[in-house]
């Protein structure tokens, strides 16, 4: 991996807005600086628009270290303060095992098998919590 590139900022992770949900897809190795940047981007995106959910798809991530685990937990905590639910989708078995071995069970984090399941989960939570007043066509 090219460490110098990532230190200098690296390629930022795109944060997509789909209706009232933010979708973030992580691919490959994520460097500390990029992860930190992502956290700020997501918080800014939630604050700047009225999203109610954040879906982080990590099915393309093979290795998660303790730092990225903590960043994920922080994103979830920040999003909750801004009234948005965070769902981590598609975690690989090896990654799950690593996190558990590291003792990072991420109790505050919601998880889903896939992005589709995550969106479903958010939709259901949304509908249950607010009975769907925000579902009007925009």
């Amino acid at each position: 991996m090219n460490d110098d590139l990532s230190r200098a900022g690296g390629a930022p992770v795109p944060v997509l807005r789909l209706g009232d949900v933010l979708l973030v897809t992580l691919q490959g190795d994520l460097h500390d600086g990029t992860a930190e940047q992502l956290r700020q981007d997501i918080v800014a995106a939630i604050a700047g628009s009225r999203v109610t959910g954040v879906v982080i798809d990590i099915s393309g991530v093979e290795i998660v270290d303790s730092f990225l685990g903590r960043v994920l937990a922080e994103i979830a905590a920040n999003a909750r303060l801004l009234a948005a639910q965070t769902v981590v989708a598609g975690m690989r078995p090896a990654v799950a095992l690593t996190l558990v071995e590291l003792g990072l069970t991420l109790p505050g984090l919601r998880t889903a098998l896939s992005t589709g399941a995550a969106l479903e989960l958010l939709g259901r939570v949304d509908a249950a919590a607010t009975d769907g007043p925000r579902r009007e066509p925009r």
Partner: peptide, 12 residues
Amino acid sequence: MKTVAAVRLMGA
């Protein structure tokens, strides 16, 4: 408990 935690992390 580890298994349960890992399964939960995967979204099940």
